[in-house]
């Protein structure tokens, strides 16, 4: 036991140091967003509630990636919350399916003003490849007012950040 411990201590960490993978474009977009939130949106904290209205989960992967150690969107003052009542921004992904139409409307209704709705992904913007399907109501804009649309199938995290920036600027303008 002692020999094992001493070996662990003596050996130390032998993995290679992590390479710096700062995504310069992403950080640039994030800093812009942070500055804009501070300038335009009174508080410097933006709380996001994400709603999957019927997407293929591609957008959700990218949204989840926003919170990981690489993108770390929290450093720009954004955070994800559990209830639409706590949120400033609703991000909606996927074409709105008939099953989720009610849920989306209710979530929009109970988000307190001022609220911003951002459609994330091609499905949410236009209906994407599901457009016109019998199971789909249409794009998000067909159900609730949308402030900004972020195209892409799915959009990259940097695109999402830039889109959020535009959404805020547009909503405040």
């Amino acid at each position: 036991m002692l020999s094992l411990l001493s070996k662990i201590i003596k050996t130390g960490r032998i993995t290679e140091p992590a390479p710096s993978l700062e995504d310069a474009a992403f950080v640039e977009a994030g800093r812009n967003l942070k500055a804009t939130i501070g300038r335009l949106y009174g508080g410097r904290s933006l709380r996001i509630r994400h709603i999957d209205a019927g997407s293929n989960n591609g957008e959700e992967y990218e949204m989840t990636a926003l919170g990981n150690a690489y993108y770390d969107v929290e450093r720009f003052g954004l955070s994800f919350v559990a209830s639409p009542r706590h949120a400033d921004i609703l991000t909606v992904s996927g074409p709105v399916t008939r099953n989720m139409e009610h849920a989306l409307k209710v979530a929009y209704e109970m988000t307190p003003e001022p609220r911003i709705v951002v459609a994330v992904g091609d499905g949410a913007c236009t209906g994407g490849i599901w457009k016109g399907s019998y199971a789909v109501v249409g794009s998000v804009a067909d159900v609730i007012p949308v402030d900004w649309q972020i195209p892409g199938d799915p959009p990259a995290p940097a695109d999402i950040i830039r889109g959020l920036l535009k959404a805020i600027e547009q909503a405040r303008a």
Binding site: G43, R44, S45, R47, A69, D72, E74, R75, G77, S79
Partner: peptide, 13 residues
């Protein structure tokens, strides 16, 4: 291993 939010964020929230 994240930078994390500013420690002042709860005030802004």
């Amino acid at each position: 291993n994240r930078e994390g939010a500013s420690i002042l964020l709860p005030y802004w929230t």
